[in-house]
Each structure stands twice: as structure tokens, then as C-alpha cells.
Amino acid sequence: MKFFSQFLITGMLACSLQLFFPWWALVGVAFVVGLFYSYRHSFSSFLAGFLAGGLLWSGYALYLNWLNMGVLAGRMGDLFQGIGSTGILIATALIAGIMCGLGALTGSLLRRTIFPPKDLDAVQS
């Protein structure tokens, strides 16, 4: 539940802020949301951010790609060493996923630095 809420909130906030701010708003959003979440393994926070960012970018890109009948993605795939349109979609997902995941991880880690896990567990339970 915790994981899912971080994923959802990160994704929705990122989506709305992306309409007005440059791409790195994604990282900022993931970081700020990450501040509110702490897991036994911080990797979970990374994963929540990764999925939120990756799905947001690739989902929107897929929609644009569909309207365009894949013409642009094919060209861009050729431009980037022939990775193809699937490669371009994966690259889009990875850039957003990794950066969003890193943002979320950094947020979570900062929280753990300020509130060590023991206290946190007490608060959470």
C-alpha cells in the first residue's frame, strides 16, 4: 500500500508539473515525495520512483507514437545507433525511470538520515 501510494503520488505530481517545468522537475518531485517514505530496503523507494517515471514517460510517448504511426520513433531509432523504435521507447522509459528512481531513493535516504529507522518503525506501526 505504502509502495503503491508513493508510486501513484509521484506519477501524478510529476505529470502535472511536467506540463510547466523542464524535465528535471521529475527528479525533484520524486525526491520530495521520497522524503515521506521509508522502507526496510531503500531499493523499494527507488523502484516506486522508477516505475512512476518510467511509466509516465513511456506511456505518453507510446500514445504520441501511436498517433504518429511510429514514423518519428523509427527515425530517432536510426539516429541513435540503430536501436530502433522499441529501443527509443525503452531509452525514454529508462531515462525517466532511473532519474525518478534516484530522486525517490535520495529522498528516502535523507529521511532515514534525519529519522533513523527504529523511531520510524515506531511511528509507522
Binding site: L19, A61, L72, A96
Partner: peptide, 10 residues
């Protein structure tokens, strides 16, 4: 910037 589907090449 380039890969951001909100403003980039997409």
C-alpha cells in the same frame, strides 16, 4: 530535454 515526451522530440 530531448527524450522528455512533454517537450522533447516526441
Amino acid at each position: 530535454h530531448l527524450f522528455n515526451p512533454f517537450t522533447g522530440f516526441w
